[in-house]
Design a protein around this nucleic acid. Structure first.
Lengths: 137, 137
DNA sequence: ATGATAATTATAACCATTCTAAACTGTCTT
DNA sequence: AAGACAGTTTAGAATGGTTATAATTATCAT
């Protein structure tokens, strides 16, 4: 959308904060994710998106980048399948539908689910996240 | 194994209903799970439990049995990690803590979490399950 | 530009799981 | 009792997503 000269200041800032150099590959992937908007991706699908615009990035780099972006707070990992990792460009707290027939992940509209949580977290641990998946078929 | 083992009538009934013969291996695994009580297992941990009482069952059979038991409603699968499948002997609707440091899965006490769900399930699909995982570290 | 450091890459390794094909088990027939 | 058979178990190979390795290449501070 924005011109290629215009840097993705937010992403750049987050990369910098995480001590990650703004390399071609990382910027290309960040741009793809930014342009695509809210979406759920896998390593393979992200590589194909890059390939579709003639950018060849090795799977190793795709995986590295996904985890680095996750650690830097640019992506969130969503665990819905044993055997495949999904990453979400929407880093806000929200929940998911997972279609077990099509393997399609989608957001549950904000506010559609609220929880009353009086669960006492196990001793010696602290809360990481609360994940809700509504599986449909 | 032998006739002196008290039959697990409920399991036997469920196996029969699922068209599964009550073989030595299936009965042995059912007995292990029954004796252990509420627990979360992996294929590997179940095989080790069997091995601990001198019952050798191949991993292929462990996996087959886990899925057959799941399909027969004897076990529930819990997905909390990309890369490993957990099975739960508690088939009642309930939610989980997952300790990301120790990879330990535990039940959230019944009633500790309630949800208000007004989410509209995607067109052409029907509800399979609602899974909640509170991740701690 | 130069050198130090970090990143990318192809490829191999990994590991939980599934597949395959052969051997086995128990039951039913005769 | 022997044969036939369908279902089951098994060892080992294959699979598939992910991670590790080691060499090459890019980036950055000076």
């Amino acid at each position: 959308m924005t011109s290629k000269i215009r840097p993705y200041t937010i992403v750049l800032h987050k990369l910098e904060k995480a001590g990650l150099r703004p390399t071609k590959q990382r910027l290309a992937l960040a741009k793809i994710l930014h342009d695509k908007g809210n979406c759920h991706i896998t390593a393979e699908s992200l590589q194909m998106m890059a390939c579709a615009i003639n950018i060849k990035i090795s799977l190793a780099t795709i995986y590295n980048t996904l985890h680095q972006f996750k650690d830097a707070g640019i992506l969130k990992e969503v665990i819905v399948e044993a055997g495949r990792s999904y990453f979400d460009t929407n880093i806000e707290q929200h929940y998911h539908f997972f279609n077990q027939t099509t393997n399609q992940l989608s957001d549950i509209p904000n506010g559609a689910i609220t929880i009353n949580n009086s669960a006492i977290i196990p001793d010696g641990t602290s809360l990481s996240s609360i994940d809700i998946v509504i599986r449909v078929a």
